[in-house]
Design a binder for these strands. Structure first.
Lengths: 210, 210
DNA sequence: GTACATTTCAAACACTCGTTTAAATTTGTG
DNA sequence: CACAAATTTAAACGAGTGTTTGAAATGTAC
């Protein structure tokens, strides 16, 4: 029993690291099992298929993150007056940073994985996410609409998708961007720094005058 | 001679469509040559390798786009006083729209390809782009710096990459977004309309207070 | 029309991929 | 200890990948 847990965990750990570095489809099961020091066939034995392994890797983060997010959103929605947009964004982003206390490099890896999910394999992952966590996302959209009453809903729709593009793209190319920043500006940037830079940028864009 | 031109062109056309739809590495040479109705080996004969084919596909757009951009940037730089940020962005985006007059779906495909270049194969494409068009890009960064003298160069670096994410992601999911907007808001949006919406959003984000 | 260069073509190469199989091993239980 | 269930293991499978090869076909120039 301990060895089963051990094998599954070792596979998940290696997979999440390689997936976030190289992407889902570019990472082979042989790379994963080699890094995890387990047998190749154990992925199919424990998870069924590579597809299900990908979902399991994401699920480990989402199971921690989404209930927290849902709670925070409900809390903000309960307040009588509309919330400030930077507050809404911060409440969205803080549980992301909390992931670091659960797992080493949690936020970085999860957001890179999320970005990979959009750019790599769109199909089954998007369905998986919407099916399980669509309700929570609706709450967030409602919060933003309350913060920007001057904007029509359609404009908010577009601007939230613009923002999603920024987040996904930034996290998917996270490592490359950090390297360039280090080379060009002698900057050492951690994920927290990137996210802190992201909030004022997104808030200004979403609330921009028409 | 005509058949050689024909084969190369047919390969480039099929490759650019499949690359933008599926990504570089997920698209096989057999898919490309099958769609182009040419022999498998002709890719290696005419382009050398898949890697060089990818670069040729991008080069066909860049050869049209970058000289135009370079000219516009030089023109703006020649003016004595700094330019307004929305002006700089508009000058950057308008040549992108010009691509549509050169090739069918030019802008959409090119930006999707650009996005793939960042998320798929980082290595040789980034080198290729910087090596050939780094000077032009520097002019654009300089223009933005002149428009936002209060921002440090490193902050502008990050915000420009945030903006690139928005552009790439929006264009990559262009079709899906237009469908959702039409269904949810009874909006009929063309690519020009999306880009017009982008400019105030990006300008506000880039110029956001620190 | 012959000679030469260019281009096309089918076939094979060497390799990697995710998955399956069946035997060997470890583990839990009566 | 013995039996059965769970797990690990090495090997192979079939399919797909980019690339190479050498002969056939086509085009060009004398």
């Amino acid at each position: 029993m301990t060895s089963k847990q051990n094998t599954q965990q070792k596979i998940l750990d290696a997979a999440e690291q390689l997936f976030s570095e190289t992407g889902f489809s570019a990472t082979s099961l042989r790379q994963i099992t080699s890094m995890a020091e387990v047998n190749l066939a154990s992925v199919n034995y424990h998870f069924g298929s590579k597809k299900e392994l990908i979902q399991s890797v994401l699920q480990r983060y989402l199971a921690v993150l989404m209930p927290r997010l849902d709670g925070e959103f409900s809390r903000l929605l309960a307040s009588q007056q509309p919330n400030q947009l930077p507050t809404v964004l911060a409440v969205f982003i803080e549980p992301l940073l909390e992931l670091n206390k659960v797992q080493h490099n949690g936020t970085t890896m999860f957001l890179q994985l999320l970005g990979r999910g959009y750019t790599d394999v769109q199909g089954h992952l998007r369905w998986f996410f919407n099916h399980h966590y669509g309700r929570t996302l609706d709450k967030f959209v409602l919060l933003v609409q309350q913060s920007c009453p001057q904007l029509p809903a359609s404009e908010i729709f577009w601007r939230l998708h613009f923002s999603l593009g920024t987040i996904v793209f930034t996290m998917a190319s996270n490592v490359a961007l950090k390297d360039i920043a280090a080379a060009d500006f002698n900057e050492v940037v951690e994920i927290d720094g990137v996210i802190k830079r992201l909030i004022p940028y997104l808030a200004a864009g979403i609330a921009a005058p028409l």
